[in-house]
Design a protein around this nucleic acid. Sequence first.
DNA 1: TCTGGGGTCCTAGGACCC
DNA 2: TCTGGGGTCCTAGGACCC
Length: 420
Amino acid sequence: MSERRFALVDCNNFYASCERVFDPRLIGVPVVVLSNNDGCVIARSAEAKALGIKMAAPFFQIERFCQRNGVRVFSSNYTLYGDMSRRVMRVLADWAPAMEVYSIDEAFLDISRIAEDRLHQELAALRTRVHMWTGIPVSIGVGRTKTLAKVANDLAKRGGGVSVMLPEDEERALQDMPVGDVWGIGRRLTAALEPLGITTAGQLRAADTRQLRQRFNVVVERTVMELRGIDCLLLEDVTPARKTLMVSRSFGDKVTLLSDIEASITTHAGRAAEKLRVGRQIAEHLEVFMHTSPFDTTTKPYTARATIAFEHATADTRLITSTALSLVRRLFKRGYRYAKSGILLLGLSEAMKATPTLFSPIDDRRSSALMAAMDLLNNNYGSGTIGFASAHTGKAWRLRMDRRSQSYTTQWEELAKTAS
DNA sequence: TCTGGGGTCCTAGGACCC
DNA sequence: TCTGGGGTCCTAGGACCC
């Protein structure tokens, strides 16, 4: 069996780079992009990093610093970033036989079939192509496993833009790498590994997997195997369907009134239902949560949350909204200063291509009938037939609806015989 | 005064059933 | 009088990622 090889393509300082594509005057200038509500830093250009601006730094703490140092500051624009991401991914998909879009700015490519001596040259060409066609600079790292490709990508970012790590290079690359830089080893694990004498990626690779599994979990064990070149994480060529969906926001100012929470939850519910329908999914459960600020040291953090099951899985805006609001009213407690609210939809599954058929005895005011039909189809996707019977005349109609893209075509048809 | 939003997976523990 | 063991499902919470 031939050796497997993965490439990780990672966009450099992605959000900051996106802003630059649309304003070249930003090139060479420190740029940062802020989270929602301009809360904290979520992207930094190389110049901003060089100034010492940290990832996730609260903006209010560095605002003056940014002014003094000529840092250009942007609120995030996810529509733009999403669009740029699709452009980059399209270029990669054109090139690679198999690829996994891992995040908005990263993709793994299966490059097992490219000859070793051509790898560097081919990937350098790909890098140039992405930059030329999208304006986004990327780094590419190659390794035997995804985890090793991540390591190689780190090296690529430090210079050259492309780093091909062959098995004989691994030892040296891992030797000096802090263990916390390994993909899958976060802050907690780094702290927990330290007393075991594991502070570098090389030491983690040499560690006893059985012991690590016992002490931690299988995820850590897999990471160690991956560092050794045994691929445990396969390329997920087909993006799996989303399993949960969350919409949440922090409040600009702390909220103490039920009516304010209700308003925010109503907005969240609407957005969540819309996202569900775009993905043609329905949800089984709904969770609502609201919590106080974790940064407020004067009071103990408080979270109110509750989950409820729908009678039938749904994507119905009104049902989701009313259910969420009933939970909010149950959960809300006076006296707390809420910092954030949100809803989480769980147990998502693919919406059936429903062909709802409904006969209901309503009068022959067609407009209200049409509204009901639209609702029904909206919530069930697909096309369908709805029958109406007039209580006054005894006649019956059939309304057929065909939903293509976003428009409906409707067809009224008077049935020859009266409905039974 | 002001600290993001959206995901995944794993484990432990309780409820419940046979 | 003695009070099993194994399986599944669900939830909460913790860890990680970008």
